[in-house]
């Protein structure tokens, strides 16, 4: 492994671009979070120190939103990861008939999020939706998909999974495709079972890719907005009111200080979550990969 030197020239363009474009707004945003700034009162901008943060800390609505967001993120990412991994393993098998189906599995990614969510609302519609029509026909009842607090949380998780299982699938699948086939052949010669070669070859070699997929999905799910906003708008009551819904409200009403404080708290929560997860998964293996 080479040190320093030439690496600089590979890293410089991308990092310079990224940090200029993203860190400046981020620092600005952190700075604004210490102000009381309401867009409709441009002449009344006051420095308030940590006020915006303190207010979030004691706001029961915000604390509830943190819980709801965490539940949603954990549920959605777990479901998506398991489904995505399963599909990727299935498609990594040398079956000819699977090739053409691959692109079909990716289709949900291509639907504009707001349309996908709107159509799911049509499908979920408890009174006139197609889903409950067939469930009733087969005697399976008609669940109140969006109008019961628990079901509503389940529904938004399902729709999020519909949309992003293809992401998990594609990332893990591409990772599987570059694993050296020789390793598996050697293991098969040694009489390893499918589970054993999964456990001892695939998992270690794919840890990094799988972790990355989970991290990326985790941070996106934590900040998910469109699907939840279209499907439930945070309701019924406050059952699906996530941090982003609150952020949208503050932003929409022009409370810049508050909105930015919510944003910075979100960023810190996500960063800590990712950091802990990375430590937990990479360290015990002696930082095997990268």
């Amino acid at each position: 492994m080479a040190a320093g030197g030439a690496g600089r020239w590979f890293l410089l363009p991308g990092l310079a671009f990224l940090f200029t474009i993203d860190l400046i707004p981020l620092v600005y945003s952190a700075w604004v979070s210490f102000y009381n700034w309401w867009l409709i009162r441009p002449r009344d901008v006051r420095f308030v120190g940590l006020d915006n943060y303190v207010r979030l800390g004691v706001d029961p609505e915000f604390n509830r939103a943190v819980v709801v967001t965490t539940l949603f993120t954990a549920g959605a990412v777990a479901l998506e990861f398991l489904a995505g991994l399963g599909l990727a393993l299935l498609f990594a098998q040398p079956f000819r008939f699977l090739r053409p189906i691959r692109v079909l599995l990716l289709l949900p990614l291509f639907v504009v999020p707001v349309v996908g969510a709107t159509m799911w609302r049509v499908i979920f519609h408890p009174e006139v939706g197609v889903l409950n029509h067939y469930l009733t026909t087969f005697g399976l009842g008609h669940p109140p998909w969006l109008s019961d607090p628990t079901w509503a949380l389940v529904s938004i998780t399902l729709v999020d999974a519909w949309r992003t299982i293809p992401f998990m699938f594609l990332v893990i699948y591409a990772g599987l495709e570059v694993l050296p086939a020789e390793l598996f052949e050697a293991a098969a010669v040694d009489g390893a079972s499918a589970w054993q070669s999964f456990r001892h070859i695939t998992v270690p070699l794919l840890t990094y890719i799988m972790l990355l997929a989970v991290l990326i999905r985790g941070m996106d799910a934590f900040r998910e907005f469109d699907i939840i906003f279209v499907l439930t708008g945070g309701g019924p009551g406050t059952a699906t009111q996530t941090i982003q819904i609150l952020n949208y409200r503050a932003f929409g009403l022009g409370h810049m200080g508050q909105a930015n404080a919510i944003g910075i708290v979100t960023l810190v929560l996500v960063a800590v979550m990712c950091f802990v997860l990375m430590r937990a998964i990479l360290r015990p293996r002696g930082a095997a990969q990268a």
């Binding site: 040190a3 890293l11 945003s29 941070m219 944003g263």
Partner: peptide, 24 residues
């Protein structure tokens, strides 16, 4: 290439993706 603090810089790259877009 490894350099001093490369792990941290790499994590910082990821951090830029964590900020809620609504805020940026």
């Amino acid at each position: 290439f490894r350099f001093r603090g490369s792990e941290a810089v790499r994590f910082l790259v990821l951090v830029t993706r964590m900020a809620p877009r609504m805020v940026l």
